[in-house]
């Protein structure tokens, strides 16, 4: 479709130009938004395309953040090594968790993913020697892109790294959902029993996509740690998992781009709220309830519906 290609191109140009337009703190906020967007997009792979509602996706973001922080702090490797470490650790932990969780379906799956995520959260909280407990790991450096290569210390340079990761991930995820594998996922979402009777066990498919989603969430977390300079148990907390679901719903489930936009909007709302009150989480909760009741289709879905009416 021409219009969507055009808007994609426009978005790419905008991403390339903004660093010279925005002030430093704005650019830093945008980087934050993009990282959250990558997280929400990874959740959409399992939630929107496979119909598996994970209530513990923050755990993989957190694992990515911790792995990245430790690699950067203790081994002083270039940032991409830390990104790889974050993505791999998240994916590796997702294998056993996914193996157990995908034995259950529907609401049981949601409860199991939450239970495992809280388990990982508690580990991060209690394993003081490695994770620094509730204080987390601070002082995570922004090492260069490679030894002798360009520095990532400036907010503009790091923004470009994040933007490149997000755009690249978006393209990879899009290819995945359009591949034979991705088509199979959507069939599982629509009717698992029918899928089984057509000749395949859905569980290996669910496990693989669960791990892929964890890898991308881990990548997002691995970007987060050097960007913010710390990793703490909060990024693995259940609240963040629930917020991830909300970002996907707000943006439009099963669209990949929608959740990125949903995440950006969600974080923006939080930013605005938190500038007025310390207890912005109450209002986040209210926004949650209102959107679930009144805008179930999310932004993309609601815009489409309004467009169809107009």
């Amino acid at each position: 479709m021409i219009p969507s290609r055009l808007s994609a191109l426009a978005a790419l140009v905008a991403l390339a130009v903004v660093p010279w337009v925005l002030a430093r703190h704005q650019l830093s906020l945008l980087t934050d938004l993009l990282i959250a967007g990558l997280f929400a997009m990874s959740l959409d792979l399992i939630m929107g395309y496979t119909g598996m509602v994970s209530f513990g996706h923050a755990a993989y973001f957190g694992l990515g953040a911790y792995a990245s922080a430790l690699v950067l702090l203790h081994f002083a490797q270039p940032v991409p090594v830390a990104l790889l470490a974050g993505a791999l650790l998240a994916g590796a932990v997702a294998v056993p968790v996914g193996w157990f969780s995908t034995r259950a379906t529907g609401i049981y799956f949601a409860m199991l993913t939450l239970a495992f995520a809280q388990f990982l959260y508690t580990v991060a909280y209690k394993w003081r020697d490695l994770t620094g407990g509730s204080d987390g790991i601070a002082g995570v450096p922004k090492t260069p892109l490679f030894w002798g290569g360009p520095s990532l210390a400036s907010s503009r340079a790091f923004y470009f790294l994040v933007a490149a990761c997000v755009v690249l991930s978006l393209f990879v995820c899009r290819a995945v959902v359009r591949s034979p594998f991705g088509r199979a996922l959507q069939a599982i979402r629509e009717n698992e029993r029918r899928f089984t009777s057509l000749g395949r066990d859905p569980r290996p498919f669910k496990l693989v996509v669960f791990v892929i989603a964890a890898v991308f969430a881990g990548l997002a977390g691995a970007l987060f740690a050097p960007f913010r300079g710390f990793a703490s148990p909060e990024v693995m907390f259940w609240v963040f998992s629930g917020q991830g679901l909300m970002m996907v719903i707000m943006g439009g489930i099963g669209t990949l781009v929608g959740p990125v936009l949903g995440a950006m909007l969600f974080i923006l709302i939080q930013e605005v709220l938190s500038s007025y009150t310390e207890h912005w989480m109450i209002f986040t909760g209210v926004v949650f309830v209102l959107i679930v009741i009144f805008l179930p289709g999310g932004l993309v879905g609601t815009a489409r519906r309004l467009g169809a009416r107009g």
């Binding site: 990879v172 290819a175 995945v176 591949s179 034979p180 594998f181 991705g182 088509r183 199979a184 069939a187 899928f195 057509l198 000749g199 395949r200 290996p204 498919f205 693989v208 892929i212």
Partner: peptide, 21 residues
């Protein structure tokens, strides 16, 4: 199509897979 794909295989092709499709 998915019924055919599930029967003939190559279901774990994560990227591309145009020929299967």
């Amino acid at each position: 199509r998915i019924a055919v794909q599930l029967k003939i295989g190559d279901n774990f092709r994560l990227l591309g897979g145009r020929a299967v499709l």
